[in-house]
């Protein structure tokens, strides 16, 4: 400690060789080096090989991803008119919509095609109802104003009509 006290107590700039001496003292006696150059070379080669494989795989994966993405974009662009409007488009925009082929239809959507409307206008056969009794139109006046019968058995004609005699 005293040597360093003398070294650092003075205000003049510390000389380079004295600092070097301090660092040399810090080193002390070196232990044997356990680093084997051949083993280190093997490890370095293995590491380099692994990194190379990883980089090649990464590049191949990137190329494959770009190819698949391009194929998807191209195919969707080619088949876009037959598949109807894109979901990103605003409904009601100036796009001519084809008549729906599917049987599943949203009931809230307005009907665009003409064919279902014609089907609704077609007259349908009358449906027989059990609670209504069909009536024949009256043919004789007696059917409209039935004649009354006297207690003696003679028929009284309706008012306004001549009697049977």
């Amino acid at each position: 400690m005293k040597r360093y006290d003398e070294l650092w107590l003075h205000s003049e700039p510390v000389e380079q060789d004295r600092i070097r001496e301090l660092l040399g003292d810090a080193l002390g006696t070196e232990p044997d080096m356990r680093l084997d150059p051949d083993a280190l070379l093997t490890q370095a080669q293995r590491r380099e090989r692994r990194l190379r494989v990883a980089s090649v795989c990464g590049a191949a994966a990137a190329v494959a991803a770009v190819t698949v993405g391009l194929a998807i974009v191209t195919s969707s662009a080619g088949s876009a008119p037959t598949q109807g409007p894109s979901p990103h488009l605003v409904p009601g925009a100036s796009i001519e919509q084809e008549p729906a082929r599917s049987s599943q239809r949203n009931p809230t959507e307005p009907r665009v095609s003409e064919e279902p409307a014609q089907k609704e206008m077609r007259p349908s056969a009358p449906t027989p109802r059990s609670d209504i009794v069909p009536q024949r139109p009256p043919e004789r006046i007696e059917d409209i104003a039935p004649s009354a019968t006297n207690p003696d058995g003679r028929t009284i004609p309706p008012a306004g009509l001549p009697g049977p005699g």
Binding site: M1, L22, D25, A26, G28, T29
Partner: peptide, 20 residues
């Protein structure tokens, strides 16, 4: 672990290491 041979001046070595 390998045994480190004692330094010539172990106090100076330890002091310098602590300072660093």
């Amino acid at each position: 672990p390998e045994v480190v041979a004692p330094a010539e001046n172990p106090d100076a070595t330890l002091d310098a290491r602590r300072v660093l």
